[in-house]
Nucleic acid binder design. Structure first.
Lengths: 248, 248
DNA sequence: CGTTTAATTGAAAGCAGTCAAACTATGTGG
DNA sequence: CCACATAGTTTGACTGCTTTCAATTAAACG
């Protein structure tokens, strides 16, 4: 997790290039972005509600999540991020953040000066377009997340999140879809799903007993992907993946 | 509701101009958009999941909502739209819609050819920027909606939605913040909040009995805005309103 | 190794859902 | 303008999923 990524921005290029046509110059511009690499301890804040930002953070290694808090301190995780995801291109346009972004476990980010990113977006319209498409896809994921939280039972909710994570990791080339190390605690899972940690625990166990998955520590092994997709009412359509195999 | 808006695109200009600096030419370009006005019956589809779109719809009068369905038919409303809102600028970049948009009651939309909108965005960078900011603000609202559904009780959820609607209507110059006609059924309210219609009904009644609001049919009268904002844990920060009075 | 953090499990309480019926408003056609 | 039909609201009784509280076990970390 702490070895400096060989070609740190390749994953960013992969993410942005997944949805828009980027030519060699576009990719060159992206991978040519320079900034400071920072290693973050677990739960370190990358972006704080109300604060403006001078840098654009790009997640190089590890994971991150977006989060909001209610007045009485309850936390809702509204998005998860995997390596290659840009974390606050939003603040390129809006001056103050309306939510928080934190590292999920230890993570490594590249902090690029805003001005450099803005210059790139101006000189390379295709990159700007790719960034907008990335925003739209995150909006689509948020809508699916809302459907998940608002209208599915605990069992489906948990299964759906596990499926989404598997597909996204796979699409980013970060591990097969049959097995992965879930980077979060059950407490965090609960906050992502609008459930309590206790109920997440019971639900995971029930999924395991029912033979839909197996667990070794935090490693999730999909013994029956099709069953999980059915239980979680999961279809990857909302992720707008390039195409190839449709996972459901 | 059916009189043709005198200057139909003024509201669109107001919405987009709220967050970005638009000069006279930008506004001229926006208000110069031409298209066909269509009057929609209640629940008419404006955009369907999976379908591409040849037009950009702009809501002129009435209301609309975004919606997704689970496999077993449960509906989650993920966003509400008021006059002046662009309804599918998203499909300018993504070819197939990942959710549905329907009229909420009778509504009137302007259908502008995609190519005209694209031409405008290319010739007027400030407008393109305003459109992106509009997207970002809708994303922010989605996150707050997620927090609302995932981490607040029914009472707070209902109050929060009523507050948000009041503030947005007010910001668009469509009615004071103390009273308005809620354009949806309790069934729809429930689908927006992740609750059942029955529970929405009970919750509204409880809010009324407690003196936080009054109702005449679907008209909501805020007898105690401060109480409602407190009950709903509402702050308008996530709406990124221009500034003036901060409502909470 | 001891200490802290996370995962598990049980029992009990509660919020919201379900089912069903009555009531009200709205709209339509005669 | 009334009568009927339809859609929406309201209310009650009951069920149940999820939470809460609490205690135990397991794992992670210095």
């Amino acid at each position: 997790m702490s070895e400096p990524a060989a070609l740190p921005l390749d994953l960013l290029a992969r993410r942005l290039g997944a949805h828009a046509q980027l030519d060699a110059d576009d990719l060159g511009g992206l991978c040519g972005l320079r900034g400071t690499v920072r290693t973050l301890r677990a739960a370190a804040y990358i972006l704080r509600e109300g604060e403006p930002q001078r840098h654009c953070a790009i997640l190089l290694a590890g994971f991150a999540f977006r989060q909001k808090l209610t007045g009485d301190g309850a936390r809702q995780i509204v998005a998860l991020h995997i390596p290659g995801d840009p974390l606050d291109f939003q603040t390129l346009y809006l001056d103050r953040a309306d939510h928080n972004v934190q590292a999920l476990g230890r993570a490594e980010v590249l902090l690029v000066p805003r001005t450099d990113v803005q210059a790139l977006l101006e000189s390379r319209p295709a990159v700007a377009r790719a960034v907008v498409m990335n925003l739209l896809i995150e909006a689509s994921m948020a809508r699916e997340w809302l459907l998940n939280t608002g209208r599915r039972g605990a069992r489906a909710r948990v299964a759906h999140l596990l499926c989404e994570f598997a597909v996204r990791m796979d699409a980013q080339g970060l591990g097969g879809p049959d097995s992965y190390e879930l980077p979060m605690t059950q407490e965090e899972l609960g906050d992502a799903l609008g459930l309590t940690a206790v109920h997440v625990n019971r639900t995971l166990k029930r999924l395991e007993v029912d033979g839909a998955l197996r667990r070794r520590g935090r490693r999730i092994v999909f013994t029956d992907w099709h069953a999980m997709a059915r239980i979680g009412d999961f279809s990857d359509r909302y992720l707008h993946l390039p195409d190839r195999k449709a996972a459901t």
